[in-house]
């Protein structure tokens, strides 16, 4: 199971659960690249068992919410326009 976190600005209720949407997540795998950000299209749920990977939500100033969610990554997105990669 992969593990990620994401930042939701002020209120977890702002996030529409179970709907495919673009979001930025951080990879929490214990490697040299820990905290690498990824832009993805994904679905997420506050039910920790609904999708295959773990997602830890944080509020916009880094506040730790403390309860795990789950996430399904549908697509990895390169955010940099092709001409500037």
């Amino acid at each position: 199971m992969a593990e990620y976190d994401t930042f939701i600005l002020t209120d977890l209720n702002e996030f529409t659960q179970d709907q495919a949407q673009d979001m930025i997540i951080r990879d929490l795998a214990s490697t040299k690249a820990k905290y690498c950000c990824k832009v993805v299209k994904a679905r997420a749920s506050s039910d920790p068992d609904k999708y295959g990977d773990r997602l830890w939500p944080r509020l916009g100033r880094g506040q730790w919410v403390g309860k795990p969610w789950s996430i399904e990554i549908i697509e990895w997105i390169n955010p940099i326009p092709e001409e500037w990669r």
Binding site: F7, I24, C37, V39, R61, G62, P79, I80, P81, W84
Partner: peptide, 13 residues
């Protein structure tokens, strides 16, 4: 490198 116009990505806190 280059600072890119027309694109922004999440930073902070």
């Amino acid at each position: 490198g280059d600072i890119l116009p027309g694109i922004e990505l999440e930073e902070a806190p």
